[in-house]
Design a protein around this nucleic acid. Sequence first.
DNA 1: GTACTGTCATACGCAATACGTATAACAGAT
DNA 2: ATCTGTTATACGTATTGCGTATGACAGTAC
Lengths: 324, 324
Amino acid sequence: MMDDIQKPGSPLRTSMPLQAGTGERIELMLTFLKIVEAGSLSAAALQLGTTQPTISRRLQMLERSLGLRLLQRTTHTMRLTQDGERCYERAKELLAGWARFESELKGAREEPEGVLRVIVPHAFGQERLIGPLASYLQQHAGMSVEWLLHDDRAIQDYIAAGIDCAIQVGEVTDPGLVALPLAQVPRIVVAAPSLLDGQPIPQDAAELAALPWLALRTFYRNEVQLTHSETGRHKRIQIRPRFSTDSLYALRSAALQGVGVGIGSRWVMTEYLEQGQLIQLAPKWQAAPLPVSLVYPYARFYPARLRRFIDLVRAEAPAIFGEQ
Amino acid sequence: MMDDIQKPGSPLRTSMPLQAGTGERIELMLTFLKIVEAGSLSAAALQLGTTQPTISRRLQMLERSLGLRLLQRTTHTMRLTQDGERCYERAKELLAGWARFESELKGAREEPEGVLRVIVPHAFGQERLIGPLASYLQQHAGMSVEWLLHDDRAIQDYIAAGIDCAIQVGEVTDPGLVALPLAQVPRIVVAAPSLLDGQPIPQDAAELAALPWLALRTFYRNEVQLTHSETGRHKRIQIRPRFSTDSLYALRSAALQGVGVGIGSRWVMTEYLEQGQLIQLAPKWQAAPLPVSLVYPYARFYPARLRRFIDLVRAEAPAIFGEQ
DNA sequence: GTACTGTCATACGCAATACGTATAACAGAT
DNA sequence: ATCTGTTATACGTATTGCGTATGACAGTAC
């Protein structure tokens, strides 16, 4: 069996097959300890909830693997050999270390510690998601967070670089990712009053084509699609942007300066609409709302640090995104 | 699978089946270390002399057993997670300890150390086997020997009490023992000249019956059997011993004192025969030679300390027992 | 653009392992 | 003598873990 490990023509094999007949060494050793402490093979079997033949075989497996006689046994009695005594003491230490190792690593699932790395769009990362972030850090003293603000969409590369998760605005199409929907963010068409130069506010989508435009390149570039909120009619408008950016805030600033018409999330525009610095154009026409998702790579297991963050953001999403 | 461990009606099971699907944890861990050090699953497979799918599965097994993601991997790249880094460092220490443990215990096979316990009859233990014993101690500085002289034959009890081996004179019938024949020790009938009181030396076995006898109870008590060295005829003689002992030396002493006729190993009598203090009676008639064996309990594995002793005694037996 | 090479994951067939049940042998107590 | 407790081993069965084959993905060269 072990003699067959090295097949002709193959490289020298240095790893042992899992089914090498040596059994699961840790479990064999634990069995040996229990035998010694219970005082007999039968008693050990009872305490371990298995059968005496199993225990007998395991002991033999261990002895064979170590090449030692650990217990001298007759049908009547059992007695530790000298080698058995030495093995017992060493095994106790070693298995204690092993138990610590496993509980520490498995414990790492339960109480998060380490660094959580999150990518967030500027629009949410500057203010609105700081609330849940603060809660998370409060609840998990052992955690620290790398909070990375980016507006591009190549999240796949960031995941490979150790990013745990991201907030993504827009559709998630990568099959390797899990997307947890958090919100649908409404968008409106806005411009500064000065851009209209005293003319009436356009009410129809067709009137918008003649105006200068700003592009939020992540979501629209040369064309915008609007839907009538009552009739459901669609309207597609070709635009030539005078200004293009991937930052929602920059778009808003350009609009405030009267550079052009822009489409952006309603919540970003609200206070300027109220102050009259911006006007909503064609108020019956709206761009499709943007989905906001918490995304992370598909995997079978997630460390505690990520699971806790996910749970928190999901719980607080309605409060963050609810009123637009 | 793991959910089936606790059968209805059986005691709570606290040991894990060897085929629990967690694999051989030590080997899994070693595989993980090799993956990290080789830099990829394929490279590790090559170095370990196995295949990439095997390595992939093993890594998954380990991750499942620990409940952690250790390596973030795509079809293109592989990267240690934080948990993976922690696991790597801890696993290195733990596996080093394990390797030391195994080599120490297995090493116990190779260079004997500890105590060898031997039972020897007085006849051999006082002088003749001291030679090999001295050689043994010389060759193995780490050994000490308990050299126990006993003449009874209940060796089975001594084995259970930690005795490694014994020199046994006479037939070995216990099936639990291994008997290595060392010699056949010739025996002769002797008496002191004073016992004959000037009468001629008996030449025939039948003449011996009228004489007073000594019994070496281990080998004869109330009856002796003699064989004619030329004709091969057997003769059985009923005796009533005036003196009975289990010590060959005591028998010799009593014979020297003229107490009676005794049968004993020729080599013990030789110098007194030469000095005329003892006479061989019925020189054509002899008792059956006694087999001398090195006996030890049947087992699959023998510690180095015993194996080395066995090898030594066997090698030196012709010199010890050759000239009788 | 295609072809090639390297990466990891998974399905499949098969050999080997380890289990519990049943049985035998031995030893001590009554 | 019988009974009870001990350990070892044979047998049938379910499960594991292997290598081979394949698929998907990614990077490089032409």
